[in-house]
Amino acid sequence: MLRRLLQAIPLLILTSILMFLLIHAIPGGPDAIYDNPNLDAAGRAALRASFGLNDPLPIQYFKWASNMLHGNFGNSLYTGQPVSSVLAQRFPATVELFLSAFILSLLLTAILGTLSAAYQGKAVDYTITTLAYFGISMPIFLLGLVMQNVFASSLNWLPPSGTATLGYTFSPFNALLDHLMHLLMPMVVLAVTFTAGWSRYLRTSMIDVIRQDYMRTGRAKGVPPARLLLRHALRNAVIPLITIVAIDFGAIAGGAAITESVFAWPGMGQLFIDSLNRRDYPVLLTALLLSAIFVIIFNLLADVLYSVMDPRIRYS
């Protein structure tokens, strides 16, 4: 783990450089902050100097990176608040949506992938495969809009957006229930999108494991089918899936951003899109860097989980 962490340091530095250069490559770049017709030339010059935009690009990067290492992420160009405060307000909502959707997706993947492999070539397998292809082909934003139209507008079962019903005073229990009702649709939309693909990977891996000699030996010895599938087959079949899940972390984050926008969920994804529209570059850079850090952490966790699921795996 220590070796993997040390390897992540140059990767993170390179990623931060590329992100910094991409922000400056956007048409207008950070210079857009002083593109105000009400500012005179002196005001523009003072604003450029205050943001350090007169320095050469390498100097700007080293100043930004140095401030980041000291916990100074700058101030939002839109609200004037420290970026750390802006992110702290949004981060819990994203963690809640991400973890709930991630756990639901893994549970559905394990159930559907195992059933599809166990009943290969039968009606159950064909039904799950059809649903999986539907989930793979359905864009996140379209699925979200369809669910809003069906469950919020037509049936009026669930609230269409937000995190709480405004204008009502609830008891603690009813407030929690109301919040969960708001969470349900964005959680399901995000989970279904990734369950569809992951269940296909698990099905293929399960079929390969089921055909192994030790599985035939277990059946011959009278091991119950459920125990054989869940304890022996699933544990070995899930190892390739760990790689896919770790690689898909960036896609999950992108899906969360779209989902948060559709359902007005006040998290990091919606903040990122709003900051992009407002050209709030300090917030954008910090959000991108946090995403890169979490991608690296997820890949490190994948390495650890390999050895947990299969003790034969060792890293040199």
Rank of each mutant, 00 (worst) to 15 (best):
M1P: 07
L2M: 10
L2G: 06
R3F: 11
A8Q: 04
I9E: 04
L11C: 08
I13G: 05
M19C: 14
M19R: 02
F20N: 01
F20I: 02
F20S: 04
L21D: 02
P27S: 10
D35L: 12
D35K: 13
P37R: 11
L39K: 02
R44L: 03
A45C: 06
L47W: 02
P56V: 05
P56Y: 04
L57R: 02
Q60Y: 01
W64A: 01
M68C: 00
L69F: 12
H70G: 07
N72A: 05
N72F: 01
G74M: 00
G74T: 00
N75T: 11
L77R: 00
Y78K: 14
G80D: 08
Q81A: 13
Q81R: 14
S85F: 09
P92A: 09
E96W: 08
F98Y: 13
L104D: 02
L108S: 08
A110Y: 03
A110Q: 04
T114P: 05
A118Q: 13
Q120F: 07
Q120V: 07
Y126R: 14
I128L: 15
T130A: 15
L131S: 04
I136N: 07
S137K: 09
M138E: 06
P139H: 11
V150E: 10
A152T: 09
L155M: 14
P160F: 11
P160H: 07
S161L: 12
T163M: 14
A164N: 10
T165G: 11
T169S: 15
S171M: 06
S171C: 06
P172S: 11
N174Y: 13
L176E: 12
H182S: 09
L183T: 02
L184M: 15
L184C: 13
L184H: 04
M185K: 04
P186T: 03
M187A: 14
V188I: 15
V189W: 01
F194N: 05
T195N: 07
A196T: 07
R200N: 02
Y201H: 08
L202H: 00
I207K: 01
V209H: 00
T217E: 07
L228D: 03
L228G: 06
L230K: 06
H232V: 08
R235V: 11
A237H: 01
I239R: 02
D248V: 06
A251N: 14
A251M: 09
G254H: 05
G255F: 05
I258Q: 03
I258W: 03
E260K: 09
V262N: 05
F263D: 01
A264K: 12
G267D: 06
Q270K: 14
D280R: 11
Y281Q: 05
L284R: 03
A287V: 15
L288N: 10
L290N: 10
S291H: 08
I296H: 02
I296Y: 04
F298Y: 10
L301G: 11
D303H: 09
Y306I: 00
Y306F: 11
R312G: 09
